[in-house]
Structure formats: C-alpha cells, structure tokens
Computed example of a mutant assay.
Amino acid sequence: MRSTRNTYLVLFHILLFSLLSLKITASPRTQADALIRWKNTFSFQPSSLASWSLTNINNLCNWTSIVCDSAGTVSEINLSGENITGVLTEFNFTEFGTLTRFDLSTNNIEGIIPSDIARLTELEYLNLFNNYFNGTVPLQLSNLQKVWYLDLGANLLESPDWSNFSAMPSLQHLSLDLNELHLEFPSFVLNCRNLTYLDLSLNKLTGQIPELVFTNLGKLQYLNLTENQFHGPLSTNISKLSNLVQLRFASNKLGGPIPEDIGLLSDLQLLELFNNSFSGKIPTSLGQLKKLQILDLRPQYLKFDHTL
C-alpha cells in the first residue's frame, strides 16, 4: 500500500508541475475579439482604427498599430497620438501575455491604471505619457520585471506606499514627471541600479534627496528633480554619478554649499540648480567641466570667485 501511495504522490506532483509550467497563449482570434471589444468602449473612435473590425478579424497582424510575433499573436500595440478617449479598465490584459510593447501615449485615456496590468509578464516597454490617468501608481507595475522603459509622465497620478514596490532590475528609463506625486522620494527607485534616465520633475515630492541616489544609481546619464520641494544640502557623493550628461535640480529648497566635487562630473553638458537656496562660493571646480554647454545657478546667495 505504501508503495502504491508513493507512486500516486509522484504522479500527482508531476501532473501539478506540468500544469504550473504550462504557458497558456491566447489565439489571434481571441486577441482580435478583445481589441474590438475594447475599441467599442471608446467614446471617440478614430478612423485610423477602422481595420479593427469583425469583418477583418482574421487579418489581425495587418491591423493598424498592431505588430505580431512569429506565432501570429500580438507582440506590440502602438496607439500613440491616436486621440483615443476611453479607459484602460476595459482592456482585457489576460489575452495579451505575449505583449512586449504597449504605447498609449498622448491620448485622452482616463481613470486608474488597473492592477491587472501585471498580467503582461513579457512586457518590456510601457508608455502611458500624456493622458488623464489618476489614482495611485499601482504597485503591480513593479511585477513587470522585464520592463526597461516606463513612462507615466503628464498624468494625474498620486504617490502610493512605495515600500510595497519591488525593485525593477531591467529598468533603464523611468519618467514620472508632471503628476501629483507627494511624500518623499520613491524608495523603490533606489534599487533600480540600471537606470540611465530618471525624471521626477514637476511633482510635490518632499524630504531630502536620499544618499542612495548618488551611491546606487551610478549609471544615470539624465537626472531631473526640478520643481519639487526637496530640501537639505547637496551630497558630496554627487561625484559618483560620473556618467551624468544632464543634471536638473532647479526650483526646490536645496541649500548649503554646492559641493566642490561637482566638478568631477566630466561628461556633464547641462547643469541647472537655479531657484534654490545654495550659499557660499561658486565652486572653482566648475571650470573643469569642459563639456558643459548650459549652466544656470540663478538666483542664489552665491559669491562669485574671480579665480574661477
């Protein structure tokens, strides 16, 4: 009896493992149906999406804004600038596990970003820039571990509890600018060590700029924190952001001296620190920035050093 029972247990675990390992892929027909149903919820349907039709349902890979993979299932949806008016909650995420690129930028899409977006497990590029999304940024976005490009800028999004977010190791480009973010610096960002582009400008973020920004994010080439409410001194570890090309910290409440080590950012082309409360002398090390094209320090309580 014991031997029979063990055999059944082994067979059960093999079956269970097989079921868990099975990747259910939507068919082109069900994906086409899902896209048409979503389109039918738009209060304005652009003529450019006329190909999204039941009369053309077997021709999915030739639809406007759709790209298919070798299996004939949807890999990219690019609806940027199509003047769509609708909501994302009507999109059937379950049918699009094969999607790698999703671009809805510059439309009139409103409402929340649904938590079901986490079903897009193959997604690498997500652009929701310049819409009317509101509510908090859903923590499920951080489950999209293959995403390298994420743009949620120019919406009406608010800060969630960032401590519930996972690090996104593939993330290289992150834009959260021009939203309603408040509280302190988004903590999950500090562990996204492959970031080269970070824009948190035009929000209501407060507190000090975390030291880990300077010590963990050494691959950054573009860093923009303009028009927030960050305060405190600028870290002397700023020199560790040695790949920076553009640094924008304007219109905050930063104070104290500008660190002399800022002159070690040898690739810097643009430096904007205006409209803060920096004091002391302008660092002579700025003269070492041979690639610098734009320097804006106005207005400050800085003294000009004629030896600069």
Score class of each variant (00 low, 15 high):
residue 1 M to E: 13
residue 41 T to C: 02
residue 168 M to T: 00
residue 11 L to Y: 10
residue 123 L to E: 05
residue 124 E to Q: 15
residue 17 F to W: 04
residue 154 A to P: 00
residue 258 I to N: 06
residue 209 I to V: 09
residue 273 L to S: 02
residue 138 P to G: 09
residue 283 P to S: 07
residue 105 S to Q: 06
residue 221 Q to C: 11
residue 85 T to Y: 08
residue 108 N to V: 04
residue 43 S to C: 02
residue 36 I to F: 09
residue 181 L to H: 06
residue 125 Y to Q: 12
residue 260 E to V: 07
residue 18 S to T: 09
residue 179 N to Y: 03
residue 302 L to T: 02
residue 304 F to Q: 09
residue 156 L to G: 06
residue 110 E to Y: 08
residue 268 L to Q: 10
residue 102 F to K: 03
residue 25 T to G: 01
residue 80 S to D: 15
residue 227 E to I: 01
residue 264 L to R: 13
residue 173 H to T: 08
residue 174 L to V: 04
residue 90 E to W: 07
residue 58 N to V: 00
residue 285 S to A: 11
residue 79 L to H: 04
residue 268 L to S: 11
residue 239 S to M: 07
residue 34 A to D: 03
residue 165 F to G: 01
residue 181 L to C: 10
residue 13 H to Y: 10
residue 50 A to E: 03
residue 128 L to S: 11
residue 92 N to W: 05
residue 234 L to P: 01
residue 295 L to M: 14
residue 167 A to E: 14
residue 132 Y to P: 01
residue 220 L to R: 11
residue 122 E to T: 08
residue 90 E to M: 06
residue 107 N to P: 12
residue 191 N to A: 10
residue 139 L to T: 15
residue 68 C to A: 09
residue 109 I to M: 15
residue 218 G to D: 03
residue 84 I to N: 04
residue 47 S to M: 10
residue 73 T to H: 02
residue 206 T to K: 15
residue 129 F to T: 14
residue 232 G to R: 07
residue 183 L to M: 10
residue 21 S to W: 07
residue 293 Q to T: 14
residue 245 V to I: 13
residue 283 P to W: 02
residue 91 F to K: 07
residue 300 Q to N: 14
residue 176 L to A: 09
residue 104 L to Q: 02
residue 161 D to K: 06
residue 217 L to C: 12
residue 308 L to Q: 11
residue 41 T to H: 02
residue 282 I to G: 04
residue 119 R to T: 08
residue 235 S to G: 00
residue 27 S to R: 00
residue 72 G to E: 09
residue 119 R to C: 03
